[in-house]
Nucleic acid binder design. Structure first.
Length: 341
DNA sequence: AAATCCGACAACCGCATCGGA
DNA sequence: TTCCGATGCGGTTGTCGGATT
């Protein structure tokens, strides 16, 4: 452990910086990488003049400064892909990120923790439980598909901003383009995240605080309106302590991106309509999934029985490509699925 | 208007893995 | 084969801005 000790000693001697990066540090890092390329992060840290660890430099570059980093809210397509891939691979963030060009594992991980896990907590189920995956699959995903259909119909491009700052910004004082909430309206150079205001030239962000483009969407069925919800509850027990209450109150408070809160909106979906909607959107081959779900025959996860294969998550894994195709058909959209998944 | 709470995300930390000597 | 530094990965924390009270 002598090496570790001396390394720590070195770090102490260098008075390593921590916390938010400054514009000057970013420029130093970008300049160095432009000259020497990526990699050899410890050497970079020593030679670039940065008082940062190699790790910190690497992270800053990969998660923030790299030119092909895609900024902006995750599109419905990307959210859908994350849900799908996470169901297959679990918390393999880097692996998932490989399938979302321009997105970092950190970004995906944060999305999962702040959005997805929050919903699971509200449902009082484990985010990795079959119950929650079913809920996601049957409600969230169709809504995302609906959003995708709406988006493509209106020719609205997702708010994706490409930093593309290195080439143009080297040596300049202009920070890369990446808004706090990644608002597309952020002017170039004005958009450091709301946590990334440099000590100098704070560049206020035009944060829109969060939610993606759900505003234009039609009313949506919500969990609390579902007749099968209460029946489904008992099965949640199978997924561990505290997982039993798939209750209406919690469900009614859902604020999933793509799911409206429900009753507060004043729109009421007759259950029959809901069931039709869900059956047609969620199931292929005319399987009466919701009926089976509500049947109370002890089936733990009907969705899981619909073909969980090819994944590491066992029998309760599910594939969404068929689901997506079916839902897209239902929505009159013709998204192609399956490529690369 | 001020205080407090909460959501979101950048950054850090520790551990695992890889690859060269 | 073993050692050790470099790198990658996932979990967690810190901090800030907006929302709410």
């Amino acid at each position: 452990m002598a090496a570790v000790t001396s390394s720590k000693h070195e770090e102490e001697m260098m008075e390593l910086r921590r916390g938010p990066w400054t514009l000057e540090e970013d420029n130093l890092l970008m300049n160095y990488i432009a000259c020497h390329g990526e990699g050899r992060w410890n050497l970079l840290a020593r030679c670039s003049g940065l008082k940062r660890t190699g790790k910190s430099c690497r992270l800053r570059w990969l998660n923030y400064l790299k030119p092909d980093i895609k900024r902006g809210n995750l599109t419905p397509e990307e959210q859908l892909l994350i849900l799908e891939l996470h169901s297959k691979w679990g918390n393999r963030w880097s692996r998932i990120a490989q399938h979302l060009p321009g997105r970092t594992d950190n970004e995906i991980k944060n999305y999962w923790r702040t959005r997805v896990q929050k919903q699971a907590r509200q449902l009082r189920v484990d985010a990795n439980s079959a119950v929650f995956r079913d809920a996601v699959r049957c409600y969230w995903m169709p809504r995302l598909l609906e959003k995708m259909a709406a988006t493509s119909a209106h020719q609205v491009d997702p708010a994706l901003l490409h930093p593309a700052h290195v080439a143009a910004g080297l040596g300049s004082a202009s920070p890369p383009v990446h808004g706090g909430q990644h608002d597309a309206t952020s002017a170039p150079g004005s958009g450091y995240g709301h946590h990334q205001s440099y000590p100098v030239d704070p560049s206020p962000s035009t944060s829109t605080s969060g939610s993606t483009s759900a505003a234009a969407l039609p009313p949506v069925p919500c969990f609390s309106e579902l007749s099968w919800v209460d029946q489904y509850g008992p099965y949640a027990d199978l997924d561990g302590p505290g997982a039993g209450a798939f209750d209406s109150a919690a469900l009614g408070g859902l604020g999933l991106d793509g799911l409206d809160p429900g009753p507060a909106d004043g729109d009421v979906y007759p259950d029959s309509t809901l069931l039709d909607y869900l059956n047609s959107a969620c199931c292929t081959g005319g399987g009466a999934m919701m009926t089976t779900m509500g049947g109370g025959n002890g089936a733990h996860s009907t969705c899981g029985a619909m073909g969980g294969h090819d994944g590491d998550y066992g029998p309760s894994s599910w594939r969404t490509d068929e689901l997506c195709q079916a839902a897209a058909r239902k929505l009159g959209d013709h998204h192609q699925w399956g490529g690369g998944i």
